[in-house]
Design a protein around this nucleic acid. Structure first.
Lengths: 216, 216
DNA sequence: CAAAGTCTGTAGCGATCGCTACAGATGAAC
DNA sequence: GTTCATCTGTAGCGATCGCTACAGACTTTG
């Protein structure tokens, strides 16, 4: 009917469309028919380009992590654990309710409701989430080790808390929260930082320069 | 094959089984075949007793709210907004990872991944969540009005924050968190209360007795 | 015992699920 | 122009989806 011959559709654009659909509806609730219709292609073309629905989802998650979901990696580039958490919360607040894409987070909510047959999909996203949480916990523990944070704090609980805040922000965004609302609740969450956010940063700066000078 | 005659199955027990399946897998990922198999009955008996899958889900949610999900209502029985939040977080921490039932919360995660056809299901749970959040916000605003909390706090952001914490706890529980871990992260969340949890309670007690004595 | 009424299991409805066999259409190679 | 390889659309696979018509089996009535 239309043009024939070598691949006539943009694989990257199709992957972006798949990412958006999985993002909005999740893995199981997104049908192959819905995917191919939105991509403007037929099922055989999708299967030739991506393998199957399962692998298309994994590719979409990878694409998401490299684009809209990069706030976790960007946050971990920060020097101190407080800056990691602050950056993560602020970027997530801006991203989760941002314009031009579905609300919330694909990694948090992409495979929440699944039958037993899709347990591996759930595990894939869970591993993503646990990895970020462990990375935060490690950063907090390192700051405690370095004397930047008091030694009596509950580092795992603190990391789990901020992971949970980000995940709750995703639900709030899906329920209609605006970027400004998310930002304000992120700032509330930051007041739970040991010593308080403002004070903690001053203390941290002091301790860090002390640590650096003692190391030199 | 087995016994025949007047209703041979326990409607309440069947509803509990449906609640558990919806709780673990969500609305769309729980098939009628899975429901009837777990209930030990055939589809016609289920349809005679509950109408259809959609109404069975609503009944299951109502049952959940009256049993495992009663922590919200129980928390709102508390006098001050801090006690409301503290009770809600502690009850949720114990409940979400409790033994003998699926992890997390049916209201939070029961209809996260849905096709457009099930948007009404998603809205039903969203209304539940928004109702609790608004109730908390109202309690905080009332305490501000009564002089129990400083007037410069962001009451809506504070309510959204604690709603998000509870929702994030549900995800953490689904990812394998223990009741003790949830309890500890709940205590971290409580340190975000204006003035801090311990100090706030003392201040509140003082202000309340002052308000009562001035009213008398 | 017989008739009435109700619940039950079997079986299957149309629709959709993820996925694919097949053949027609098109480009490149010579 | 002819051949070859590849992509494309049609059509449909077996399985499952939510749901139900139907008839047989049971208890309740007389």
């Amino acid at each position: 009917m239309t043009t024939r011959g070598p691949r006539s559709f943009d694989r990257d654009a199709a992957l972006d469309i798949a990412m958006t659909l999985f993002w909005r509806h999740g893995y199981e609730a997104t049908s192959v028919a819905a995917l191919t219709k939105a991509m403007g292609i037929n099922p055989p073309s999708m299967y030739a380009a991506f393998g199957d629905k399962r692998r298309l989802f994994s590719e979409a998650v990878r694409r998401y992590a490299e684009t809209h979901g990069s706030y976790g990696a960007k946050a971990l580039e920060q020097t101190t654990s407080y800056d990691v958490v602050e950056t993560m919360l602020h970027l997530a607040a801006a991203e989760y309710a941002g314009p031009g894409h579905p609300p919330g987070c694909l990694v948090v909510d992409g495979a929440t409701n699944t039958a037993e047959a899709s347990d591996d999909v759930k595990q894939e996203l869970r591993a993503f989430r646990e990895g970020i949480k462990q990375a935060i916990a490690a950063r907090i523990a390192a700051d405690v080790e370095a004397g930047l944070l008091p030694p009596d704090i509950d580092a795992p609980a603190l990391a789990m808390f901020y992971a949970a805040v980000v995940q709750g922000m995703s639900t709030q965004a899906r329920d209609g929260a605006t970027p400004d609302e998310l930002r304000r609740m992120a700032d509330v969450a930051l007041t739970a930082w040991p010593g308080g956010p403002g004070e903690a940063r001053d203390v941290r700066e002091n301790v860090r320069s002390a640590a650096v000078s003692s190391r030199a």
